[in-house]
Design a protein around this nucleic acid. Structure first.
Lengths: 336, 336
DNA sequence: CTGTTAGCGCTTTCAG
DNA sequence: CTGAAAGCGCTAACAG
């Protein structure tokens, strides 16, 4: 077994209170004693138990991250952001994956509380009563990432999905496109999926363009589904001159379908993605897309969480991460 | 504050020992008492503190994962594998990122021990004396992932990088290629980078092909560096008919360079990658590559870790995850 | 400035 | 089958 504070106290010939003091750079400890204790600690390589410490201080220096998946690069990068700042603040990370299951979200919310995490960063499509109950009952500092939160006390960090999509579609329109298809996120994907669609719809409406049902297809965020969704649109008979996809992966899948069918991109159809994953520059033509910084999102989420934990400063209920329109080769002016 | 076991005891009119017993489905507890306690727990939504429990039981149901990065999809998927099995066994995951820094690896190894993780899955380029010291001193069950371990008691889960590369290059040779370039991993990337190179070298040697220094270039695992590495090879004057890249990302970068220079792929140069990331099917031409299952790797690593933790069964020192050669459009027969 | 003494919330002998 | 008591490793008053 490991050495305990008692062992150190004995070895250094002091009380464990003193050892505790030097460990915590406690107030005034006689320099000689301190040096002595320190050298003993050094020699035997003593490390205090975070568990015991957490138990009495009622804090763990652990924060929880609950996200649907991690194989998705967007979440991976987000997590790197959180991790970077967490490291600076001396927090460790407990990670749980939910596969978008509300049940698992609840399950892990509870589990994280059991482990006494000091706070949680949660990515959920929508906060249900059950989420809120747990968070409020146990007073767990919590920030929502990726979706807008409407719950006071639970701030969120996210994109302005509406504006981003609006601008993307406006850009297509400015390039002379009017017959613009969209592959949107599943209807149950939460607020951000809806907002992207709303941006699309509003941009068209503002230009007096009326879209039909068959301009729109639904897809989860995979390339495979994007492929199918594009197929659906084309087979419906609609001939768009441009496509706005709710994610880069969808866009790539769609692009693949079109290329497989002999369409030339962007000559026949312009394509606009969302996310700016690194593959956007690796595919040909390079993909136009909406850029935002996932890492920034993660960092901001953590910073807000810290504010919540320290109770020093109340973070804004909503924090927007900036976005930019990135024009690459997949979009060209439409000539009629 | 949260309710404690004492509250429950009081509320249920029993001793906390009894409450503890029912929580742990302890031996025989009078059914009436048990039901009573259970209903109280249910009613007030009591959840025992994992910290306190961990302190006395000397286990945390936490396992640590220490990897260089997570934005890299390979690690992301690995982590999903670990997570999937961990969930079944009721373990939570503490995650730390090291950016390949040995110092950070050591740092987090210590930190994880402090938090009393029951075991650690570590991805490190090579185990130094310092790693081993910590692991052995504190008797932390630990499995190495992605690299072969030569330390008894620290088993590893990894690919047979040598064979995989050997087979890939043999495949190119079988397709009539002899002037085969390679972009390899950095020299300090550890054993698996070396093995991939050795596979390449051996395959050529076995066919009596002598390669020169300018056939080889070095790149980290990014597309940007792959681009530069390919440029280097071409500008050296060597005209390969095929390229074997140590990763898909490198391959894609290289492909981009070649395409930018007007080369036609695969007509002018065949390309072989490694990893089978999902983009391999999204780019044109689709990339030939070495496939293996990162998720399987993660799952296997966890299973081995559990064996180590439970001390029931000693896991094999080395566990190989199977690989396969995937031929796609980026490789064609060379016609001289 | 230092040691003694209580706990933090839980499990686990050990009696009964 | 149940309760009392000790203790996991640490911190935090409180005296001295």
């Amino acid at each position: 077994m490991s050495l305990t504070i008692n062992d150190i106290a004995r070895l250094a010939g002091v009380s464990k209170a003193t050892v505790s003091r030097v460990i915590n750079n406690g107030k005034t400890v006689d320099p000689k004693l301190r040096d002595n204790v320190l050298s003993v600690i050094e020699q035997v390589n003593y490390r205090p138990s975070a568990l015991a410490r957490g138990l009495v201080k009622n804090e763990s220096n652990l924060i929880g991250i609950i996200v649907p998946e991690i194989a998705n690069i967007v979440f991976g990068v987000m997590l790197e952001g959180v991790s970077k700042v967490a490291e600076i603040y001396g927090y460790d990370i407990m990670l749980s994956l939910t596969e978008k299951s509300t049940k698992k979200e609840i399950h892990y919310l509870n589990l994280h509380r059991d482990k006494q995490v000091d706070g949680i960063i949660l990515s959920s499509r929508s906060l249900k009563k059950e989420h809120i109950e747990i968070i409020e009952r146990f007073e767990i500092p919590c920030v929502l990432i990726g979706q807008k939160s409407s719950v006071p006390g639970i701030p969120s960090v996210h994109l302005d999905n509406f504006s981003a999509s609006y601008e993307a579609v406006k850009t297509l329109i400015r390039f002379g496109h009017r017959k613009i298809a969209m592959i949107r996120a599943p209807l149950d994907d939460g607020e951000s999926g809806d907002e992207r669609f709303r941006g699309y719809a509003t941009a068209l409406a503002d230009e007096g363009i009326q879209f039909e049902d068959d301009w729109i297809s639904v897809s989860d965020f995979s390339a495979a589904e994007g492929y199918v969704a594009m197929k659906q649109i084309i087979e419906s008979g609609f001939q768009p001159t441009a496509l706005f996809a709710a994610s880069d992966k969808i866009a790539l899948g769609a692009m693949n379908y079109l290329q497989d069918q002999g369409y030339m991109i962007p000559r026949d159809i312009s394509i606009f993605g969302f996310d700016d994953m690194d593959v956007t520059e690796l595919v040909r033509p390079k993909l136009s897309t909406v850029h935002y910084s996932s890492i920034e999102m993660g960092m901001t989420a953590f910073r807000n969480l810290i504010k919540l934990i320290k109770k020093e400063e109340i973070p804004a209920q909503h924090t927007n991460v900036p976005h930019q329109i990135i024009l690459r080769d997949s979009v060209v002016r439409h000539v009629s």
